[in-house]
Design a protein around this nucleic acid. Structure first.
Length: 152
DNA sequence: GCCAACGTTGGC
DNA sequence: GCCAACGTTGGC
């Protein structure tokens, strides 16, 4: 069982969108490291911190879980999609994604509060220069985030 | 809109 | 395989 933090722009897919939909395909990842996490390390039932990014109040907005294995991302073959990749061969699709299931919509644990929390200082998403949209979360960090989400 | 940080591309 | 140029991310 692993834990992850996954970034989503709420304009595209917010925690409320996920709550309404139940499950959503995590399409649009175009970074090899993030793809490899989904393909090689993620397992069914892995815990996900759903993080709102590129928005007025960035931070963790809810909890989700991985609910599929990685499979080819259809948007890479759609010329009308912003995620279209002309160089991805159909026989060997370059981009994959998992599906994610809603678990809980929480209070917003803001990026500011995360930065001020000593017990979260090790989180990869807080490290200088981090841009990865999917980052591993340790069991200790997961527990610490849950504790904060469920208090104050 | 700015810009730091980092990933990708492509010429050599 | 190096590395400069360019593109993207994402907080502010």
């Amino acid at each position: 069982m692993n834990y992850w933090l996954m970034k989503s722009e709420p304009d595209e897919a917010s925690i409320l969108d996920l709550q309404r939909a139940g499950t959503l395909p995590w399409t649009g990842v175009r970074n090899y490291q993030a793809r490899n996490f989904m393909r090689d390390v993620m397992r069914l039932g892995d815990g996900v911190l759903f993080y709102h990014s590129s928005c007025p109040e960035p931070g963790v907005a809810g909890l989700a879980e991985v609910c599929s294995a990685a499979y080819p991302d259809a948007t890479q073959f759609d010329p009308a999609s912003p995620y279209f990749d002309a160089k991805s061969p159909r026989e060997v699709p370059r981009w994959l994604h998992v599906d994610v299931r809603w678990r809980e919509t929480t209070r917003l644990l803001s990026l500011k509060e995360m930065r001020e929390a000593p017990e979260l200082a090790s989180m990869q998403v807080l490290q200088r220069g981090n841009r990865l949209s999917i980052t591993p979360v340790s069991p200790q960090e997961w527990q610490a985030v849950l504790k904060r989400l469920h208090t104050a």
